[in-house]
């Protein structure tokens, strides 16, 4: 009779416990951030894994997103005789929204899943326990460089995404559709504000970097140490990161561009 209620209670308590463990892990990571100063090489390695290896997918996606935006935008704007505003539309969409969000989703899929699987396997094969046996703190040695690498790579990748997208929009808009080149750039420069648009976009991206890497690391660190558990954690890492990024994006947009 009371079984379903008890099950519900257990579910909620488990979720709360996970949430608590996640925040404790984040706290431990933040406290250990100084560690990378002693071993910067670990950070370079992770920036390579997360940043450099994501360059291709981020760059190509940015190019095509920019080109599609220009095509679609031109179709609508030309109906109002405002095709000159194409540059503003493409750039504002990229810098404010699509750059940070799509980059975060791509990184969650490309690098976040890899982080979860790597750390999950380390746990499953008891490498993390091994480190602890040798009195090496796995949080500082394994998680901190990965966290910082992800957080630092994300805004750089988003900037590359937006820049490539603007160029893609330029190729299609000016090269293919015949929008005036000067109008494309001048309207853009007149309407895109440095603080309002660019800095806010980069702040968003930084926040996404923290969230995506944190979720990936936690899912790996908290995994059930079996092959099935690792596979489940990897899936969960991508799904949760995507959901949280999209939700957080709404909140940040409301805060930044609300008034």
């Amino acid at each position: 009779m009371l079984d379903p209620l008890a099950r519900l209670g257990r579910r909620v308590l488990e979720a709360l416990e996970r949430l608590g463990r996640g925040h404790l892990l984040l706290l431990a990571i933040l406290l250990g951030l100084g560690e990378v100063l002693r071993r910067p090489r670990l950070l370079w390695e992770q920036m390579f894994n997360i940043g450099v290896l994501s360059l291709l997918i981020v760059g190509v996606s940015g190019l095509f997103v920019g080109m599609v935006l220009a095509l679609q935008g031109y179709y609508v704007l030309s109906q109002f005789g405002a095709a000159e505003s194409l540059g503003v539309m493409v750039t504002a969409s990229l810098v404010r929204e699509l750059g940070p969000v799509v980059t975060a989703l791509l990184v969650a899929g490309r690098a976040g899943s890899a982080l979860t699987a790597e750390i999950g396997l380390m746990k499953a094969t008891e490498q993390l326990s091994g480190l602890e046996m040798m009195a090496v703190d796995p949080v500082r040695r394994i998680l901190v460089p990965r966290f910082l690498g992800g957080v630092l790579s994300m805004p750089l990748l988003a900037a590359i995404f937006s820049a490539v997208g603007v160029l893609g929009g330029y190729f299609v808009g000016v090269g293919l559709l015949g929008v005036d080149e000067g109008a494309y750039w001048s309207q853009m420069q007149a309407k895109i504000d440095f603080d309002e648009d660019l800095v806010n976009g980069m702040l968003k991206s930084l926040a996404f970097g923290v969230v995506v890497t944190w979720i990936a690391l936690f899912q790996g660190y908290d995994t059930v140490p079996t092959s099935e558990g690792v596979s489940r954690s990897t899936t969960r890492s991508v799904v949760q990161a995507a959901l949280v990024v999209l939700g957080l994006d709404f909140v940040l947009t409301a805060l930044m561009f609300g008034d």
Partner: peptide, 15 residues
């Protein structure tokens, strides 16, 4: 590359 992209956005795209 990332910094160049940022610089491009700042100097060529924004006001």
């Amino acid at each position: 590359l990332g910094l160049v992209a940022l610089f491009f956005l700042a100097m060529h795209v924004s006001n």
